[in-house]
């Protein structure tokens, strides 16, 4: 049996399909439950089979508890603001670490990595103090600022630049191009997959962030999606409206999920060429 041609790939495919089913079940349930009436509790509520009389009332309830249009806008603003600044900082730093030699490079590189290790709860109060000192309290900029430097992004861009052969730069510099022109016209276009790969990580992380925006932002017109979602997830006195929770989760996740479905091939390719293979 084992020696049959093509059995292993088939076995693998079957196995992965089974796992994929398990992986998809929570998502399938979320979709089904979001359209199911009686969302707080009933015997058949765990069924993955959609109901015959779907309802939109869960979505209506979810949308009712906040201004979701505003939340989408603010979240998009935070996510794109963080990403835009990060692209600049990590490209410059990644380039420096990948291509330049200078005293203190190793130490600085590890000092960058330290950012990954710090646990968020320990940083709430110190960072909030800094944000207040900078005059950014209760602003979207305050929600973004701590993420403008990214150790992960720098590391990723360094790997990406390292993966680009030096011939291109050499040719360009022979022609007398200044360093910034080489970076801008030669290296960055080639490093775009790295930036795209980082963008997925960054956008997902900040789209889904809860605690820090909650700490920095007061003005309801600055609230982000996860703060809106918290209205369903943080109830203390025992109420769990599963249908509304499912609908709310879908509302939060939908834009990212649609983007991933639409661009998954390009995303995956970006990972392939980004140099994060190690």
């Amino acid at each position: 049996m084992w020696r049959d041609r093509g059995l292993a790939p088939m076995l693998l495919a079957t196995l992965v399909a089974a796992v994929a089913f398990v992986w998809a079940a929570p998502f399938v349930w979320t979709v089904v439950a979001a359209f199911r009436p009686d969302g707080a509790g009933s015997v058949g509520m765990a069924s993955l089979v959609p109901d015959l009389n779907p309802t939109l009332s869960n979505f209506r309830n979810a949308l009712d508890s906040g201004s979701f249009g505003l939340y989408y806008f603010n979240t998009a603003l935070v996510v794109s603001g963080v990403l835009a600044v990060q692209c600049v900082t990590i490209s410059l730093a990644g380039y420096a670490f990948a291509r330049l030699t200078f005293p203190g490079r190793d130490v600085l590189f590890y000092a960058f990595l330290l950012q990954l290790m710090l646990v968020p709860p320990a940083l709430i109060v110190p960072n909030l103090r800094t944000i207040v000192d900078l005059g950014l309290y209760d602003s979207l900029a305050g929600a973004m600022a701590p993420y403008f430097a990214s150790a992960f992004g720098t590391f990723l861009m360094r790997q990406t630049f390292l993966a680009i052969p030096r011939d291109f730069e050499e040719a360009a510099s022979m022609d007398g191009a200044p360093w910034w022109a080489i970076v801008w016209y030669v290296l960055l276009p080639m490093a775009r997959p790295g930036l795209v790969a980082f963008a997925i990580v960054s956008v997902t992380a900040h789209w889904n962030e809860f605690l820090w925006p909650l700490m920095v932002i007061n003005d309801p017109s600055n609230h982000t999606l996860t703060i809106g979602l918290a209205a369903f997830t943080r109830g203390a006195e025992g109420g769990k409206e599963w249908g509304v929770l499912a609908a709310g989760t879908l509302l939060v996740v939908a834009p990212l999920a649609l983007a991933f479905v639409a661009f998954q091939r390009r995303f995956v390719d970006s990972f392939v060429f980004s140099g994060i293979k190690g």
């Binding site: 979810a62 009712d64 906040g66 943080r234 109830g235």
Partner: peptide
């Protein structure tokens, strides 16, 4: 805070 349901916030 909202102790029970989202609509309390509104």
């Amino acid at each position: 805070p909202v102790p029970v349901e989202g609509k309390l916030a509104r």
